[in-house]
Design a protein around this nucleic acid. Structure first.
Lengths: 135, 135
DNA sequence: TTCACTTTTAGAATTATTCTAAATTACTTG
DNA sequence: CAAGTAATTTAGAATAATTCTAAAAGTGAA
């Protein structure tokens, strides 16, 4: 097999970020397979498990940079903890309050009607829908 | 004028909470006029301004108790800060990202259709809609 | 290579929140 | 209304998530 592995360096360069060792390692974990939801801590643990040295501060830096570059979306569902979602397309979330799990669901079928206009002087950034459930 | 001032002690008792001096003071600020959005810090500052001594820890305790008793609703819109809303009826929020302001809007006109069923083993807790805007 | 600039790092600092143990206060009951 | 008991408040320490800092290491252009 040749050329089948995604080119994370280009992905990063395209986002205006130097493809350093740790950014590539983080990108590999984040974007190497299907969509993911991570916290800084969980991502840090995962990358360290691949034997590439990364400081937690670097994970925070990278998550913020990736988010700013549009590679990730930050989801705020619980006080005191940020989740980052590799799915940046339009979609919504299930949040299982009892165990802190977050799941995507497509926005295709969802229709929201009757939203008021943004207060004047502001422009719409996005609409978040979080369906909270408990076990 | 007689008997026009709301009876915060009864409100608290009805919620199963002893009407202590600081809880009554907090309730007065929270529920004394129209609906409010507060953070622990902002509420603490407001109540201290009424010359009733309250520790910040007490504000946190009370906010959590009021929330558990259904007197307040906790709204999570920004990482690392919790807002509490005195409006516990069904409604949604505008969040002005650029300055951290939160505003209610009624859910009357809003219709959400096509939401998926809760994952099995879970029951719906609530649906949050946050319309994020920026200046 | 070398140089200029970026990035990473460990650890300290910051911020929001919770915990602790002691002091105070609220609600009985006599 | 005096006491006793349990609930509450408090100051400050503790914790947790995140950001900052200054120094060391890495990156890419020439």
């Amino acid at each position: 097999m040749s050329g089948t592995s995604p080119d994370f360096a280009s992905l990063l360069r395209g986002a205006g970020l130097r493809p350093t060792r740790q950014r590539v390692a983080l990108a590999r974990v984040l974007f190497g397979s299907g969509h993911r939801h991570v916290t800084a801590e969980s991502l840090h643990a995962e990358v360290k498990a691949t034997r590439i040295p990364v400081a937690l501060a670097t994970v925070y830096n990278a998550l913020n940079q990736f988010r700013d570059a549009g590679l990730l979306r930050e989801v705020v569902v619980a006080p005191g903890r940020s989740y980052f979602d590799t799915n940046t397309s339009h979609h919504h979330h299930f949040f299982i309050e009892t165990d802190g799990e977050l799941h995507d669901f497509p926005s295709d079928k969802v229709t929201i009607a009757g939203l008021p206009a943004p207060p004047k002087g502001t422009r719409l950034s996005r609409v978040d829908v979080v369906v909270r459930v408990r076990r």
